[in-house]
Amino acid sequence: MTTRARKNPTTASTIDRLVERFSSMSLAGFAVLVMTFLYLPILILVIFSFNDDRSLTLPLSGFTTRWYVALFSNEDLLEAIFNSFYVATVATVITLIIGVPAAIALDRIEFPGKTLFRRFVLLPIALPGVITGVSMLNLFKLMGMNLSLETVILGHATGLVSIVVTQVFARLQRMNRSVEEVSADLGAKPWQTFFLVTLPNIKTAIIGSALLSFTVSFDEIPVTFFLTGRDNTLPMYIWSTLRRGITPEINAVGTLIVLGSLVLIFISVRMLRNPGN
């Protein structure tokens, strides 16, 4: 009795509590709707990749894996996949070669034009891909270069350097600077300090951002659209088949891409979240 008496709420707070409960429940319902909105399309993609019918309509007509089987006999597609791997791998390596030193420079070197440099390095993350694509197309044309997978690589690397820079820079900022001084103090030459102290501390940020770069490059369209020559990357191949109409094969290849992307992204997010040890 005493407890109830003590807890006996005033009318105002009863209303507040009701309002709060009601808002909690409607928020939860809304959240479910948002998650459905986000994942239903992906689910549909996956489901129809196993649907035994050419047309993408309900009701479902049966389970099949023939679209997947068809993928592996489609030589254009296989070549496009191979091209995408090639482009994404090389582009990622370049983003690391450029991005890691750039992040280090932004973190610890004072130089004239630093603000301008930072703006330019980070610009592609903010700008629509179409601008990066068009401006680099102009450059290559001016230099008399033929469009090819290599020009696509240069475009991707330029666009994705900013991912590596932001992630590695963020990690460097969190890193205790005095460990590098200790290393020098203990007689380590600069390269030793870099490989034995700095690199191990930013390793996971590098791997994480590399995986992100890879995933994005693998799926990239706007820049690729302008810079590719006769060889297609996978998204460009899908793009061109889309113009001919929707097919279950695309759902199958899409399912595989989604699966692969998810795996890479989960690894990379883990890497980027945990600061190493």
């Binding site: 460990v179 001084e181 200790v182 290393s183 103090d185 203990l186 501390n201 190493g276």
Partner: peptide, 14 residues
């Protein structure tokens, strides 16, 4: 040939 002890110790975490 001098060595320093840092205020925050700065041990190598890895």
């Amino acid at each position: 040939e001098v060595n320093m002890v840092f205020q925050d110790y700065a041990l190598f975490p890895h």
